[in-house]
Design a protein around this nucleic acid. Structure first.
Lengths: 143, 143
DNA sequence: CCTGGCGTTGACCCCCGCGTCAACGTTTAC
DNA sequence: GTAAACGTTGACGCGGGGGTCAACGCCAGG
């Protein structure tokens, strides 16, 4: 199989496959004329890489998985090194989620305070005037 | 105040201040010899920018805040445009957190499954052999 | 006068995962 | 024979937030 076919089957561009080769993932055999030559195993490698990419793994993180697959294991995560990558990613995700929640709460607090001080209550000058309109509390509702 | 002093007071490098100026944030007056000339207001602008940066806001997002401060408001988030940035960031953070949690659970599931199939239980061949050693359950405990 | 420490602009480098273009060779179909 | 459709390598661009030179101007102290 040549690069165009593999790219199409994997849903990637040829540029991507060449990039992976330049990074040392997905090394390719060559035919007599210098064309890259791939097989079904390479397609599985790409599917593995794609899955990891979708999970936000860096390309480098995919290396243990492809090594694992190429060494004959049925899945890329059948090797200890791959599991370590999983665990490291989990820890990274947990740390990142916690940090983002912390920031989120801070931003929400800033927003709430700024909304309070900016809008000193919607002027309760006459309760009758507000009748008929449901909850005119938020200023951004009227553009 | 010249750029070196402001940079030191704000805890930034002169390169950063010049970069902000090139981006249109923090425009600087000039003295007769072409040196940039700053005042206390600029310091407050930088503190505002730094706070937002720490929250993960892009530099562009800081623009409404500095505009707000320069237009005389006591805080950078006293203007509607700034509040919109807050709200957009909140939505972005929520979406990002949700996505990361989703990915986290998927990765955890992959890890759990791979750990199961890789280690078919730590061979309970003899309970007596395990006596004396506390909880030898995890393979990564022995390097 | 010279040195040292400030200031100025401009330009390239970093990371990452490719997109895009150039200039060229190979194979296939008509 | 020739054009299209593939393949090859190499190089630059991007976006964000600056770092790190280079080459030069300005000014004060000894």
């Amino acid at each position: 199989m040549r690069i165009g076919e593999l790219a199409e089957r994997a849903g990637m561009t040829t540029r991507t496959l060449r990039y992976y080769e330049s990074r040392g993932l997905l090394p390719a055999r060559r035919t007599g004329n210098g064309y890259r030559d791939y097989d079904e195993t390479d397609l599985r490698l790409l599917e593995q890489i794609r899955t990891l990419q979708d999970f936000g793994f860096a390309l480098e993180d995919a290396r243990p998985f492809v090594d694992c697959l190429r060494s004959g294991h049925p899945t890329g995560d059948a090797c200890p090194a791959s599991l370590d990558v999983y665990r490291a990613k989990l820890a990274e995700l947990d740390a990142c989620i916690a940090e983002m929640q912390r920031v989120r709460n801070q931003v929400a607090a800033h927003l709430a305070y700024a909304e309070l001080t900016a809008a000193p209550a919607p002027e309760p000058r006459c309760d009758l005037a507000a009748a008929g309109r449901p909850a005119p509390s938020n200023p951004e509702d009227q553009p």
